[in-house]
Design a protein around this nucleic acid. Sequence first.
DNA 1: ACACAAGTAGACAGATCGGTATACATCCAC
DNA 2: GTGGATGTATACCGATCTGTCTACTTGTGT
Lengths: 196, 196
Amino acid sequence: MSQASNRLEKRDQLISTAFSLFYRYGIHAVGINQVIDVAGVAKRTLYHHFDSKEALIAATLVYRDQQFRTWLEARIEQAPPGEGALLAVFDALDDWFNERDEAIMPFHGCFFINTCAEYTDPQNVHHQQCQTHKRLVREMLFRHAYQVNAERADELSQELVFLKEGAIVQAHVMADPQAALVAKGMAKRLLQSYAT
Amino acid sequence: MSQASNRLEKRDQLISTAFSLFYRYGIHAVGINQVIDVAGVAKRTLYHHFDSKEALIAATLVYRDQQFRTWLEARIEQAPPGEGALLAVFDALDDWFNERDEAIMPFHGCFFINTCAEYTDPQNVHHQQCQTHKRLVREMLFRHAYQVNAERADELSQELVFLKEGAIVQAHVMADPQAALVAKGMAKRLLQSYAT
DNA sequence: ACACAAGTAGACAGATCGGTATACATCCAC
DNA sequence: GTGGATGTATACCGATCTGTCTACTTGTGT
């Protein structure tokens, strides 16, 4: 094992461990000692890679943003372009909620919604990272909405975002395994009304 | 000041103070000492009324559930029955998000969604209190949806819940003041498709 | 060969956590 | 008028928090 790969490994171990714990138990509920114990890494090593817990939090948000969008993008591109792609979003959500896709397991709600719940002030640096993530996902939907209805792609992607967020909350809070399918039904009718 | 009224006052002061702090900063981020300092009450008094922080959390959830549903019910009943009542929900949300209604100010997202973000396990006792709240709100919508389309009131109220949750998340995470109006537009089209 | 970057274990600091204990004041009901 | 419920203030408990520190090991590049 080379030094360089070890360096990256430890850093990534810390981020992925921190993410898993933060995601499951919430950020404030998880201490630095718990992170290093689970990651199997010395405290000194954590503070070598990150200035503070805040920096580690920021890194987990970047990590999850990348992971989530990569996953969703891949799921969407397996579907036919346009309407098919947009409906594929809800099939992807369905697999996420019901933990049928290893790439995105487990499901404990949206990490970014959850983080905003702990940092409610929109000026907070972590809250703003969450806004950035949501903006990037919206842009992804926009690109596909543009194929369906170029003129009204902004509206359409916005409304699909509402259905997506509603589904995530319903799936998590109510532990409703059907949430994505209900949202998909709504999306189908929405897409009909946008069909050119 | 009588003993009885004092008794209730202190207990209620603690609950309403705890709610405000939990709502703004998150539950895990707020300590018992902060609650008693802001409430202006001795620690002994808190532990006289509540066995533990957990018990105080449970009480704030009951308090907010009551407050929120009373508020929403009142807002809905000012509108004409049926479709008007259901659309009034989104006008109410609009006032909530933009802090135009003193009875429900301030806005930091949905306390119950936020609480589920800190207690992600659906088996957790606080998470289940949140489910109960959401179920009761859904029942409120169901009663009015029943006036619009008795046969499909279940579906309709379910879909309106999705729009409501989507709007709350969008308003909070993205600090989007328009969220309720977007959802209202979607609800209007939804109601058209359910019109008998 | 040696300097340096990255790692280890673990003690420690100072603050804060939830919760308990002590000692005393107030007020109402019986 | 006394007992019990409710309140005050404050000290204290053991645990845990984030973050620092010492002392040592390991592997790489020059």
